[in-house]
C-alpha cells in the first residue's frame, strides 16, 4: 500500500433482491490515478461506480476515500457527492437550464457561491471543455458531444477530488466520441483522479494506470493495460477482449 493511496475498495458486495450484482470487489487507486472498469454489460461496472458516490448502496465491504469510510451510515452523502464528480452515460443535463445554468447550479446552491461567482466559475469550466460559444444554449440545442462536455464541466465546477465516468461516450454517435475523449485526455494530463467505466479500449490503453475487468459482479483480473490487454491471464478476459475487438 502506497502513501498516496486515495481510494481503497475492499470486498464490496451488493444484491438487488436475491440477485447478487457485486461480489467481493476490491481494487485500489492512488491520487492522480486513472482506473478503468471494463466488462460485459450487466457485469456490475456501473453499479460499482455508483457505490463510490452512494447513488447505489453496497451492502457489504468497505470503500475508503481519502481515509474516510464511504459506506459508513453516519456519512453525509451530500458532502461526499460534493467531492466526487459524476458524468453519466445519458448526460442527464438539467433540461430547463442553459449550459451555464447547468454548471453554475452546484456552485451556487451547494457550495453557496454568489450568483456572479457561480456564473464566472461556470463560464471558466465551459471554456475548459471547449464550449466558450455555447454559454446560453439549452441542452436541447446542443449536440450529444456538446451535452456530454457540459456534463463534464458541471462535475468539474464542484472542484471534485475524484471524477466518476459512467460510460460517457456510449450514447454518442461515433463522430462525436472524439471530442469527449479529448476533454477526458486533458483531465488526465492535469492529474485528475478518475474512475472510468467505458468500452473505449484504445482510450483505456492510453490513459489507464490500471484496468479492472469485471464479469458477473466479480473482479476477474486486473493490472496495467499492457499486461491485461496483451497478455491476459484469465481465459474470460481474453474472450471478452476478442469480442470487443471484433466490434471495432
Amino acid at each position: 500500500m502506497s502513501d498516496d493511496e486515495f481510494l481503497r475498495v475492499s470486498d464490496v458486495s451488493k444484491w438487488y433482491g436475491e440477485e447478487k450484482v457485486l461480489e467481493e470487489v476490491s481494487f485500489e487507486m492512488d491520487r492522480g490515478d486513472v482506473t478503468v472498469l471494463i466488462g460485459p454489460s450487466g457485469s456490475g461496472k456501473s453499479t460499482m461506480l455508483r457505490c463510490v458516490n452512494r447513488l447505489a448502496e453496497a451492502q457489504e465491504g468497505s470503500i475508503l476515500l481519502d481515509g474516510e469510510e464511504v459506506l459508513s451510515p453516519d456519512l453525509d452523502v451530500d458532502e461526499l457527492r460534493r467531492e466526487v464528480g459524476m458524468v453519466f452515460q445519458g448526460f442527464n443535463l438539467f433540461a430547463h437550464l442553459t449550459a451555464v445554468g447547468n454548471v453554475a447550479l452546484g456552485p451556487r446552491r451547494v457550495l453557496g457561491l454568489s450568483e456572479t461567482a457561480a456564473r464566472e466559475r461556470a463560464e471558466a469550466q465551459l471554456e475548459r471543455v471547449g464550449l466558450g460559444e455555447q454559454f446560453d444554449s439549452y441542452p436541447a440545442e446542443l449536440s450529444g458531444g456538446q451535452q456530454q462536455r457540459v456534463g463534464i464541466a458541471r462535475a468539474l465546477a464542484m472542484e471534485p477530488k475524484l471524477m466518476l465516468f459512467d460510460e460517457p461516450t456510449s450514447a454518442l454517435d461515433p463522430e462525436l466520441i472524439g471530442e469527449v475523449l479529448e476533454v477526458m485526455h486533458g483531465l488526465v494530463d492535469e492529474g485528475m483522479t478518475m474512475l472510468v467505466v467505458t468500452h473505449e479500449m484504445s482510450f483505456a490503453r492510453e490513459v489507464a494506470d490500471e484496468i479492472v475487468f469485471l464479469d458477473d459482479g466479480r473482479v476477474v483480473e486486473r493490472g496495467p493495460p499492457e499486461q491485461l490487454f496483451d497478455h491476459p491471464e484469465e481465459e474470460r478476459t481474453g474472450r471478452f477482449l476478442e469480442r470487443i475487438a471484433s466490434h471495432d
Binding site: 458516490n53 447513488l55 451530500d78 458532502e79 457527492r81 460534493r82 464528480g85 459524476m86 453519466f88 445519458g90 442527464n92 443535463l93 438539467f94 433540461a95 447550479l105 452546484g106 446552491r109 451547494v110 458541471r154 462535475a155 464542484m158
Partner: peptide, 18 residues
C-alpha cells in the same frame, strides 16, 4: 420529469428537497 434529472441533482450534492 426524467429520473436521470434527479440522479444528476443528487450527484452534485443537492439534497432531495433541493
Amino acid at each position: 420529469v426524467e429520473e436521470g434529472q434527479i440522479t444528476a441533482g443528487r450527484a452534485i450534492g443537492l439534497s432531495k428537497l433541493e
